[in-house]
């Protein structure tokens, strides 16, 4: 191992501090992310008939296993938002943007994502948004790069 070395009498080795877990997606999120790669948005119907997006494997109320996928979107509506004036390095943009809870058309629950609104005055509760897709899908939530605010009228 070339990262390890002996200096005089003492051994030293590289120590990388991280949680190197790999996760599998399971039957429901596999479908969601496969569809997302193809620029389609998919939810799931829960026991009470609500459409959950992102889809959940189990009903949040009754814990029943859920099966019935439902196509939703691509447009949606802002349910709540917070304006990030000074983005942090890992966040989706290096210019100010909004995190928002977005209820996609045909969905009953909201999903969290970023909205590239340019400035805070362009977004409000009830704003219509549509997805901006990543040029190259990479198999993550970022295949949906962000949402953008639809022009009025």
């Amino acid at each position: 191992m070339n990262e390890n070395s002996a200096t005089g009498d003492s051994l030293s080795g590289l120590h990388v501090l991280e949680y190197p877990y790999r996760r599998s997606l399971g039957p429901v999120l596999s479908r969601f992310f496969t569809d997302l790669r193809d620029r389609k948005l998919t939810g799931i119907r829960d026991a009470s008939g609500r459409v959950l997006v992102p889809p959940q494997e189990y009903d949040p109320e009754t814990a029943e296993t859920l099966h019935e996928f439902v196509s939703v979107g691509p447009g949606g509506e802002v349910v709540s938002y917070s304006w990030v004036a000074e983005p942090r390095s890992k966040q989706p943009f290096d210019h100010p943007f909004a995190y928002a809870l977005i209820r996609l058309d045909g969905a009953d629950t909201a999903m969290l994502h970023a909205v590239d609104a340019g400035e805070e005055s362009r977004i409000s509760v009830g704003s219509r948004v549509r997805p901006r897709w990543a040029a190259e899908p990479g198999g993550s939530i970022l295949d949906l790069a962000c949402f953008e605010v639809e022009e009025e009228g």
């Binding site: 989706p92 995190y99 809870l101």
Partner: peptide, 22 residues
């Protein structure tokens, strides 16, 4: 949620702010 949310890196204050506005 590690699949659908963490990779967007929302900071805790922003997540709380979504709740506050609602």
């Amino acid at each position: 949620d590690p699949y659908c949310v963490t990779q967007l890196w929302p900071d805790a204050d922003s997540v709380a702010a979504l709740q506050a506005r609602l």
